[in-house]
């Protein structure tokens, strides 16, 4: 049984149908990549899975249970973490408060403290900035905070929306290193990325979205060598 099963999903805003009949599935502990141009519907797809954008048609099932139409805060509780596009950390809360909010739905205080310490050893710079306001962090630090915050709900599945966007190469490789480590923790990942090359290296399978529909779906290796993908998303001449 797949961990996440999206079936014929349709979602959008007002008259805009950003996602039109997308199906995909994620198995436990697996990383899958979703690539596509700007406006292809990648972000909307993730937001619909998380219940932020209403699903108009189709179903989303998580661990065999339907989560279609469920409010976001309950979906988080079931085990889907989401590091949204643009990071969206809380700018006027301290780094510590941002992380504590990541564990908002948990009550195991001792374990939360240990998990925060672990995040700080993963991203030492966050440990140094615990009492600083989130909004004063650099872009890379904010992305680390967003990842740490999403991890603190102890998800079984993480939705990551453009975690490398606008970051320096050295930060990008650090972030991808951490994402690669999620498999060992038993966390499955849906990775939405502009940086298709790096995403397909991490992922086992990938989907290509074009104007709200799946145009290609294959193993990551197959996708990375597909001429259409190479032309459009990998920048090979």
């Amino acid at each position: 049984m797949p961990l996440l099963e999206v079936c014929d999903l349709e979602a959008g805003y007002g008259p805009i149908r950003a996602v039109q009949g997308v199906s995909l599935d994620v198995i436990e502990g697996e990383i899958v990549a979703i690539i596509g141009a700007n406006g292809a519907g990648k972000t909307t797809l993730l937001l619909a899975i998380s219940g932020v954008v209403a699903t108009r048609k189709g179903t989303v099932r998580f661990m065999g249970q339907s989560i279609t139409g469920m409010p976001s805060h309950e979906i988080v509780r079931l085990g889907i973490g989401h590091a949204p596009e643009g990071r969206r950390i809380f700018p006027r809360l301290s780094v510590r408060e941002n992380l504590e909010l990541g564990a908002f739905c948990r009550t195991d205080r001792g374990a939360i403290v240990r998990d925060i310490e672990e995040i700080c050893s993963l991203f030492p710079v966050l440990g140094q900035r615990m009492s600083q306001m989130g909004g004063t962090l650099s872009g890379g630090e904010q992305q680390m905070l967003a990842l740490g915050r999403a991890m603190l709900s102890r998800p079984k599945l993480l939705l990551l929306d453009e975690p490398s966007l606008g970051l320096a190469p050295i930060v990008v490789s650090k972030i991808f290193e951490v994402i690669a480590g999620f498999t060992a923790r038993g966390i499955a990942v849906v990775l939405v990325e502009q940086n298709a090359r790096a995403a397909l290296k991490l992922a086992s399978r990938g989907w290509v979205l074009e104007t709200g529909r799946v145009s290609l779906f294959a193993n990551a290796e197959t996708l990375a060598s597909d001429p259409r993908v190479r032309d459009a998303y990998l920048g090979d001449a």
């Binding site: 976001s72 969206r88 006027r92 909010l101 908002f104 739905c105 999403a150």
Partner: peptide, 16 residues
Amino acid sequence: RAVSQDPTAAALVGVD
């Protein structure tokens, strides 16, 4: 405070 700063991000960490 989280909701006042970003309601969507608050919902995504499990705040009702």
